[in-house]
Design a binder for these strands. Structure first.
Lengths: 95, 95
DNA sequence: CCCTAATTTCGAAAAGTATCTAAATAGATT
DNA sequence: AATCTATTTAGATACTTTTCGAAATTAGGG
């Protein structure tokens, strides 16, 4: 929970690959694993659990598949955190 | 260089503490070390080097002090990366 | 020049993370 | 229930990062 967990989750390259894939819509664990095919399914599952704990993705079980999709709200929080260093996303007060 | 390095740099709690301190203006290595006083000066120096490599901070030598300050432009890039996951565009004028 | 203060670099230990294979679980279908 | 498929968990190992204390470096002021 919290920004710390979110940042750590995003700091890993493989997890970012997964997030970028999910930007294109929801995917099952298997689909994700075959996209990130240089990793074993077990490793992908581990990364999904990290992303899930950080609430960057949500899972939805359906039939005998588990689908994952992005959870935009956590990205919003992250945006706010980063924004504090640039002069807040929607304002301009400093040149 | 690149988003990977930036994210890894920001993913560490101590480094985020340092960045937040620097939000208040530039500080010497020593000032930073006494702020993050639960770490040794050597460790703080290591973190500063990581932040510097990621170009999140810039150093400026003056007298027998080394001052550090934030480099907002890298935060902007990070903002763009994160922004792609939120519906909100955050496209201003850059690049 | 030497002394002192500020900071970094070195080498090593501890802690944390990513990855694999193999085994376990869960659900659908037969 | 037996089995097939999808996915996770367990346990082990390799890798990476954080941290420290001690030694080295750099710059200024007598």
């Amino acid at each position: 929970m919290g920004i710390a967990e979110t940042m750590k989750a995003i700091a890993d390259r493989q997890r970012r690959r997964i997030l970028l894939l999910l930007k294109g819509g929801r995917r099952s664990a298997g689909e994700i694993a075959s996209y990130v095919s240089d990793l074993s399914a077990a490793t992908v599952s581990y990364h999904l659990s990290v992303l899930k704990k950080a609430r960057l993705i949500r899972e939805e079980r359906q039939k005998n598949h588990i689908y994952y999709e992005l959870n935009a709200s956590v990205f919003e929080q992250l945006l706010l955190w980063v924004g504090q260093f640039t002069g807040e996303a929607h304002e301009e007060e400093n040149l």
